[in-house]
């Protein structure tokens, strides 16, 4: 058996390293466009403004004592039909501020769920004594 020729090993090794480098770059390229696409999709899908609007409206209504059964029904069906969201709102009672304090509080629970994003808040709405 003839001996194996062991010359030029550096050249072989460098060739190998370059090919691994090209392989790696191809992998990075295959991922990059997907990343850009999914990021902006995620930003657009997040219902930040819807949640803020619903929360502000409910807190205002509680402050001004305008919540009725009809209003709650309106909120639920409008959010369901226009924002694809299931919303809920529950009264958890009145809390009297300690003597000398300026406010009484109404304790409420606000929730918003559009299947992807769920928001829940326990909120104390202040009312001037």
């Amino acid at each position: 058996m003839e001996r194996l020729n062991d010359e030029g090993q550096w050249i072989v090794l460098m060739g190998f390293l370059v090919s691994v480098g090209i392989f790696f770059l191809a992998f990075v390229l295959s991922q990059s466009t997907l990343v850009g696409q999914t990021t902006s999709d995620a930003v657009l899908e997040f219902p930040k403004n819807e949640i803020r609007d619903y929360r502000a409206e409910v807190i205002d209504l509680v402050k001004e004592d305008k919540i009725t059964d009809a209003i709650i029904k309106d909120l639920k069906s409008l959010e369901l039909h226009r924002n694809n969201a299931v919303v809920n709102f529950t009264y958890l009672g009145e809390i009297t501020g300690s003597p000398g304090s300026l406010y009484d509080y109404t304790k409420i629970n606000i929730s918003f769920n559009n299947g992807l994003t769920r928001y829940k808040e326990l909120c104390y709405v202040p009312k001037k004594k």
Partner: peptide
């Protein structure tokens, strides 16, 4: 393997900042 990754890339004609 390199050819597979390149050809398998999800080419999107809309750039990532389209939205």
């Amino acid at each position: 393997a390199t050819a597979y990754f390149v050809l398998n890339t999800g080419f999107m004609y809309a750039p990532g900042d389209a939205h």
